[in-house]
Design a protein around this nucleic acid. Sequence first.
DNA 1: TATAAACCTGAGTAAAATAGTCAAGTATAT
DNA 2: ATATACTTGACTATTTTACTCAGGTTTATA
Lengths: 141, 141
Amino acid sequence: MKLTSKGRYAVMALVDLARFDNINPVSLRDISLRQGISLDYLEQIFSKLRKKEIVQSIRGTQGGYILKRKAKEIKLTNIFDAVDEKVKTVQCKKESKKGCNGKSTKCLTHNLWDELENHINNFFEEKSLEDLVKDNSERRI
Amino acid sequence: MKLTSKGRYAVMALVDLARFDNINPVSLRDISLRQGISLDYLEQIFSKLRKKEIVQSIRGTQGGYILKRKAKEIKLTNIFDAVDEKVKTVQCKKESKKGCNGKSTKCLTHNLWDELENHINNFFEEKSLEDLVKDNSERRI
DNA sequence: TATAAACCTGAGTAAAATAGTCAAGTATAT
DNA sequence: ATATACTTGACTATTTTACTCAGGTTTATA
């Protein structure tokens, strides 16, 4: 089990964005330079974040991105969801009748994966972008 | 982020094994049939489980595998560790001086990933094979 | 109004990881 | 003897990841 770069980059970029957001739109170029993430890749990521209404774009010179919601209201779960980084523990969810692995009953560990998913999602649902920004500025003092 | 088949299969197979363990060694062939997992793949997985002393092998006819430790003492974390399924959130851990992404400071989200890792590992450390077996037999009644 | 900064989009692709298969063994109960 | 079952290592197709590339469109400002 691992976290992919896309998810990590999304969070890093948003924390960066959230710190400068109050003043002006933040360009991806700046984020790219500050965080060391490829500009092209950032564009892909922000395209998804925009579609899920986490950020808003402002085109043209001096343009960039701003947060569409308050940092407090953007949870990690929203971010991961936007970039398709989901906690996917097991394939056997929708097919409630068929069960797992083509067997007629639920697999022996079915409930376990459900529990695990909940456990991880809890963490993601509690943590907001604001928490991360605060956490960071505190450590700077 | 996702769990791989190897980790899921390992847990499924061990739950299966733990349920029959008291009587006789359990052959991989039986597990393969019951759980619908390829025999060859199971062999790879059990080779790792054996090296980490989670199971013990008994060769020859009527052979198979038995648990090397009590089900209560086998935690999910041991299983995932054995099959190289680790919670890997971020690359920037060892290089304590260099920081992340080649920058001179820790990346903005460094602490977050640490926290997440701990959160997930807590779950894995608390859950034992015995819990899973019990959970399963209870639901059968 | 020209131009450059910045967003926007889709296609393509190299490298890595995953999920196995295959082949050729060795050990042992019966 | 022999069949059952563990043991090992190499191999491979597929999928996923982590990007790059090539072309746009929009708009502030000089």
